[in-house]
Amino acid sequence: MSATLQELRLADPRLSRFDPMRRIICFDDFDRGYCGWTQLVGNYEHTLDSMTASYATHTHPQLATVSHWDAGTHGGVDGTYALKIATRPKRGIRSTAIKRLTFRQAGPIRLEFYFTFKPEATEPRLSETDVRSVGFLYDLQTGYEQNGLRVMPHIRFLNAQDGHHIQRWQYKDETTPLRQIGTEGKTVTHDHLAPFGWKDVPGGEQKLCYNEIPTKINWHYMRFDFDLAAMRMIEMQCNDRRYDLAGIPSIVMPAMRNLWCMLNLVFFAEADADKRVFLYVDSVCLSGEF
């Protein structure tokens, strides 16, 4: 990247908090709207009853002002709105938001975003163990001329489990068996976010700022580098810590006939109490080295 391009980006207040690769694929500032982020609905055929139950309970993402009963509007990183992923109030449940793209260059890509998370402030106590995890994943498939793989790198910050404050980055390389949907032989499903198979990223403990009451939030920086040519993770960074992901596997399965060059981005949150939990994201920058 040229020094001039670097200087231009550092002088642009929308981009100066990011370190994008050469080409910005999309920049989602939620003060401009939803920017293509939507509800992840489960697959079905003929009837909605054929949808996997854990997908059926996903909620619709919201443009949130991060407002609370005691202090009013918190706002986003640099404006009023953030993308909010909210679960239902049930322990172990999850919710997601998705953006669906395809890629044109199988090379390195970089996902950067700012995020924070909190449980719904239904109690006047810190409630720091009510959010089980927040995380992100890609749902990828190689191009038709590549090696015929669907690849799903998953990363989560395991904040708490069973009331214990854990604060550790994890990855997942297992999913459920494929299940045929309907009768036409065109649709299958699997629950890649099913709550099993999470493994620790080596050295993945990280103490994040979570403040002192349930309505005070602080934004965290996240960067995730992935190579679409090798279909391998490279590295990630959260705030001041970097993690080498070169040896970290993804969920891998044979390619599906209808998903070539798929580049889906997903954020998710999981609850560890019978309480809604919220993942907020503001903003997202996806870039590629091409």
């Binding site: 443009l63 407002s67 909010k84 239902r88 809604r276």
Partner: peptide, 8 residues
């Protein structure tokens, strides 16, 4: 329904 935030 679940709460939906739409102050915008």
């Amino acid at each position: 329904t679940e709460p939906f935030e739409a102050g915008w």
